[in-house]
Amino acid sequence: MEFEFFILDWIQTHLRHPILDPIIVFITTLGNAGILWIGLTILLAVRKSTRKTAAALAVALGLCLLWGNLLLKPLIGRIRPFNAQDAITLLIAAPLDYSFPSGHTMSSFAAAMVLLLTERRMGIPAMILAGLIAFSRMYLYVHYPTDVLAGLLMGCLFGWFAVRIVQKLHAHRFQRNQQEKPHR
């Protein structure tokens, strides 16, 4: 844990700056409650050509909610770094839940992975944004580096898994529809 505080304190000492502060706060806000990714899911669900992507996003975000926020956070119960260091002034409201894993990071990388695998033109900017959101959590002293790393790994795994689930369901449905067509 000392190494994690070393990284967080290094960010505070060498990277934190009054010009960057509002930018980082804005970036982290994009990940609040997964609202950006949920909104994107809804938008993609409107067009028939992107409905499979929307379904995969919904599955990935659901996995993040269930595994990360509802299961792992309370099970592990890791306190946040700002609770362990008294001298930190937060730039955002103090999160009330536990620290591990980073939900912002997990949902952002889950969505970005789905987009990277299904809509590549959107996937690359989404991965960059996910990385910025992940970094913002350490900059703001609300997550340890291992919280962010776990969120990144779990998010990518959930995103990949969600795409595979939707592909298999779609293939199964297509096959079933082909079998039900009358032969001429």
Results as ranks from 00 to 15, higher is better:
E2Q: 15
E4I: 01
F5A: 06
F6L: 12
I7N: 07
I7L: 13
L8M: 01
W10K: 11
W10N: 13
W10I: 03
W10G: 12
W10M: 11
Q12K: 13
L15E: 07
H17N: 15
H17K: 08
I19M: 10
L20N: 09
P22V: 11
I23K: 12
I24A: 07
V25L: 10
F26L: 13
F26C: 05
F26N: 07
I27K: 00
I27P: 00
T29R: 15
G31H: 01
A33Q: 04
I35H: 09
I35T: 15
L40Y: 04
T41E: 08
I42D: 03
I42P: 05
L44Y: 03
R47I: 03
R51N: 03
T53S: 03
A54F: 05
A55Y: 08
A58R: 10
G62L: 15
G62I: 12
L63D: 13
L63I: 08
C64M: 02
C64I: 07
N69D: 14
N69T: 05
L71G: 04
K73G: 08
P74V: 10
R78E: 12
R78W: 13
R80Q: 01
R80D: 00
P81L: 01
A84F: 11
Q85C: 10
Q85P: 06
D86V: 06
A87E: 10
L90S: 02
A93P: 05
A93C: 03
A93L: 12
A94P: 09
L96V: 09
D97V: 06
S99A: 13
S102E: 00
H104S: 07
M106S: 05
S108F: 00
S108C: 08
S108R: 11
A110T: 11
A112W: 05
A112D: 11
L116K: 04
R121G: 01
R121M: 06
G123R: 04
I124N: 04
A126E: 10
A126Y: 01
A130I: 00
A134T: 09
F135C: 01
S136L: 10
R137D: 07
R137H: 09
Y141D: 02
V142F: 06
H143W: 02
H143D: 02
Y144A: 14
Y144I: 09
D147S: 02
V148R: 00
V148N: 00
V148L: 03
L149W: 02
L149E: 05
A150W: 09
L152I: 07
L153C: 14
G155C: 07
C156S: 14
L157I: 15
L157W: 15
F158G: 09
G159E: 00
W160D: 02
A162T: 02
A162K: 06
A162H: 11
V163Y: 01
R164E: 14
I165N: 01
I165T: 08
V166C: 02
V166Q: 03
Q167I: 14
Q167L: 12
Q167V: 11
Q167K: 15
L169W: 10
H172N: 13
F174L: 15
Q175R: 12
R176L: 15
Q179I: 13
Q179N: 11
E180R: 15
K181D: 07
K181E: 13
K181W: 12
H183I: 14
